[in-house]
Computed example of a mutant assay.
Amino acid sequence: MPDQRWDDSGPRFRPSPALTLLLPVAVAFLVQVTATIGLSVWLHVPLRFAAASTALAAASALALLAARRFPGPTVAVVAALTLADLFVPPDASPPFIALAFAIIGAVVRGARLWALVSVGTAWLIALAALGFVDARVHPFRIVATTIGLAACFAIGEAIRRRLDRGAEFRARLQERRRTAEQDERTRIARELHDVLAHSLSQIAVQSGVGLHLFDREPERAREALANIRALSATGLDEVRGVLSFLRGDEASPRTAPLTPQPQLADLKALATQRTGLGLAVTLDDRLQGDFPASAVQTTAYRIAQEALTNIVRHSGASTATITLERRGDQGDELVVTVEDDGTGLVPGGSEGAGIRGMRERAELAGGVLTIFPGDRLGTAVTARLPWAGAS
């Protein structure tokens, strides 16, 4: 059965290796052997010459069986057999199409030099021998044969270039696939990191408080457990929503995400969630209800969420402020600043996954993210995003 392969450009039919090897052998054998026998009978050629010519025709066709593994030696053998047949009656023997198959196969398989040397040598010997024996050969036959041999080389080169272009195209296509898959993995990891880091860091803090107060203040411990339950449920819904969004299911009513993509209006609830256990989070919203594009809002929310997560996990801050502003000469820029009074930046410290994720989000939205010491000895994370989104 032929092998059918598919790629992004549509279905591609590729014959099996056995077919591409055996079909030239069969065609050459049937044409050459049948035509040689027929001419020998028609011209009443002596039996020994007819047998010799038929044997040469059959041998040149069968030699093509080695064309795949040994394309160079194959074209040399077929050229020699073709040359020998020129000196065996009948003089009007059929053309050896096995030589054409051998030349094309050798050029396609990278044995171009073998083909040039073998065929060129055989043709020069044939011309010299015909002149030596004073054989009368019509000039048209010589010209036609020369043109035919050149055409075989041209066909082989054309097929070789086409195959090379096809291989180059498939390599580029495969590289694009790998790049797209890597980008998709990075996007999924970034989305899940934002959701899980936010929920799990809160759960870890609340569970620690609950364990610490379990015996002394059971009411507060119960409150911490209730918070853990609410956070875990919210986190699970967000994970489902993110996965549904990444799968592109949000357009289907049956598979719509349980929670929509967060917007700037949700920052107030986020600040309330983060307030407590020694950290006071305030929201300074200077937009006055004028919000940018939805995708920009989601990016700004995720950056603020990750910044607060880093504050809880690493800075030891007591206060944090989220500031929303519209800036730029034409008001075309959303500026989100998250500032705390914690321990500040570590000199020479490397960026973790959270900071890399915030920076990637800002860049994908067409903006930029900067992190520098804040006015209160802590850290200030500022994201500048285009108001209308990435262009």
Rank of each mutant, 00 (worst) to 15 (best):
F101T: 08
Q182R: 15
S60A: 15
L39N: 06
D284A: 15
A80C: 07
D237M: 08
L19C: 04
R286I: 00
A180F: 06
F29P: 07
L334M: 07
L211V: 12
G38F: 08
G348W: 09
S315P: 00
A320E: 01
V77M: 09
E351Y: 05
L277C: 02
V242E: 12
S201D: 04
I188V: 15
E175Q: 11
A128F: 06
I303M: 02
P24Y: 09
V312D: 12
G38M: 09
A106Y: 04
E181F: 02
A102D: 02
L39C: 01
F140R: 11
G248N: 08
L308M: 03
F132R: 09
A221G: 10
R141T: 13
T323Y: 03
A151I: 12
T382S: 11
E306H: 00
G131R: 10
A61Y: 09
P15S: 06
D3C: 05
E181W: 06
T20L: 15
V209Y: 13
A51S: 10
A317C: 07
I155T: 12
L19F: 15
L83M: 05
I147W: 08
R12I: 14
P260H: 05
V75H: 07
W114N: 07
A390V: 13
T146A: 15
A106M: 07
G110L: 07
G241N: 04
A380K: 05
N227E: 12
A51Y: 00
R178L: 14
A61T: 08
R190H: 10
I228H: 05
I303V: 13
P292K: 11
N227W: 05
F245I: 02
W123F: 15
T309L: 02
L163M: 14
E363L: 11
S207R: 11
Q297C: 06
G72Y: 07
T370G: 08
V25L: 11
A383Y: 09
F291N: 04
P89R: 00
A144W: 08
F29R: 04
R247I: 00
L369K: 05
R216H: 12
R376W: 00
A57W: 08
A150M: 14
A151G: 14
R187S: 13
I155Y: 08
F372E: 15
A126F: 09
H212L: 13
P218R: 12
F169W: 12
A66I: 04
P94Q: 08
L243P: 03
S294A: 15
V77H: 02
P253C: 04
A300S: 03
T20W: 10
V45M: 07
L130C: 02
R136E: 12
R376V: 04
R109T: 01
L56V: 07
T146P: 00
L192C: 09
P218L: 03
A365W: 04
D215Y: 06
A300H: 03
R229P: 01
L345G: 05
P253V: 01
G349A: 15
A50H: 05
R178Q: 13
T186D: 11
A35G: 01
G354L: 02
V242F: 01
R12C: 09
A115H: 09
A128W: 06
D332P: 07
Q273C: 00
L287R: 03
L173I: 00
L267P: 03
E351H: 11
A144G: 03
